[in-house]
Design a protein around this nucleic acid. Structure first.
Lengths: 242, 242
DNA sequence: TAGCACCTATAGCGGTGTTATATGAACTGA
DNA sequence: TCAGTTCATATAACACCGCTATAGGTGCTA
């Protein structure tokens, strides 16, 4: 007869591994510790996960999806740049809450091995940035912006994890956050290319581009292409309403 | 009789460990491999380094002093902010040259354990920034600036190491570098929205227009025209050409 | 020569990741 | 009902790992 409240060995292994990894301060955790804590013998571990590394990967993947869920469930403020700040802070907080997990997730990324999850974190951030771009707040490609922001976010979080919890200065995070955000997006007001509302002014942006093209001609377009391009730009710019 | 050109066992151990760590792609290296490669038996390792970790720490410390020496020997351009860029690039390059060493040095920093060396890297960067402050280019404390720059620098380098060498996009580095530097220092000549080359705000305007067009499609252009227009816009935005 | 640090080697201990093999449980089809 | 199959777990052992108690050179000083 089996207790009904008892999770199956597979999840018991996962939880035991996660708990032991979180407790033992970065020192290696043996499979024997894990199987003993899960009240299971060695072969069941290898039956379910194939490998010690397989088990650890599963733990990391679980932590990662926890992180992504948390990110996705953050409320949206309606102001894309403000959302960006929130996601940055959430990332840092996650790292400080699960330092060992975070070190494995972002500090140990070996080529060809782990970056698939990092890529999904990048992709999510890119979504947020696409919304910012739609509000004409972006100054570079959303993809480039996402990579840059994520890189800085990881660096800051690693640095904060590295120093003793008592002495942690979160201003490092805020400062770097503003630095990298302001280089990537123009904050709400004082921007000539945006309307008062969220709906950006295509006309203003077109005019700005038109003006910029007068002084420097890009060589990505042939002269004939450029001619037609400018004509269309002119047409867009001459539109009256918003 | 002993060969004279032969280094003593201690340095043989150090070199063998460094070489094996660099070769074997992040997978653990056993003491037996090391001692065999150094043509030495186990106890001499423990006599000289006390511990496997002691040996690895010595390797890391050596790599670290190599890094710091390289940083210190960089020429100074006389322009503090330009020096800052040079040190940033040198940091990234070091990470790409010694990826595994770098991962141990900056990706695995466990509290209470390794940050003494990170602290010295931070201190050196602070020196550079003090010179910038003396030139009245700084906007925040040199210490805060150093921490912020170093954090972003580490994050970018880790991210570049993580992706396959072929696909590495160094623009991520340049972009983040300018972001964090411009938030910390006022630069006389350079502008964060411009490349190292010369392509000015055309790109910015193109990206803004691109973003604006995502939410509202103008009716002055037919759908086929719009398609081509967007394609060109994309080409201009990607600034690869010049 | 004796004595004395220093450095290195022999041989082995306990622990680790892993697996060949076997046992049990649950479900299937006849 | 029961043989057959599949899945899940256990027993016991292997080869390797980090590490060390002990002992043996080696070169120096006296």
């Amino acid at each position: 007869m089996k207790k009904v409240g008892e999770p199956p060995p597979k999840t018991r292994l996962l939880r035991a591994a996660a708990a032991l990894l979180a407790e033992s301060n970065g020192e290696p955790v043996s499979t024997r510790q894990i199987t003993q804590a899960a009240r299971v013998t060695a072969p069941t571990l290898y039956h379910h996960f194939g490998d010690k590394e397989g088990l650890f990967d599963a733990v990391v993947a679980e932590g990662f999806s926890e992180y992504l869920d948390a990110e996705r469930n953050l409320p949206t403020s309606g102001q894309p740049v403000e959302d960006l700040r929130m996601h940055w802070d959430n990332h840092v907080q996650f790292g400080l809450d699960h330092p060992h997990l975070y070190l494995v997730m972002f500090g140990n990324i070996r080529p060809e091995h782990r970056p698939s999850m990092v890529a999904s974190a990048e992709a999510f951030l890119e979504e947020v940035l696409v919304r910012a771009a739609a509000a004409a707040r972006l100054v570079v490609t959303p993809r480039e912006a996402a990579r840059s922001i994520l890189a800085a976010n990881i660096g800051v979080t690693l640095m904060l994890i590295a120093e003793p919890a008592a002495k942690r200065n979160l201003e490092l995070s805020a400062m770097t956050r503003e630095a990298v955000i302001s280089a990537v997006a123009t904050d709400s007001e004082a921007d000539p290319t945006t309307d008062t509302e969220g709906s950006p002014s295509v006309v203003v942006a077109a005019i700005a581009l038109n003006a910029a093209l007068q002084s420097s001609h890009p060589d990505q377009l042939s002269s004939s292409e450029l001619k037609l391009f400018l004509e269309w730009l002119q047409r867009i710019s001459s539109r009256s309403g918003s």
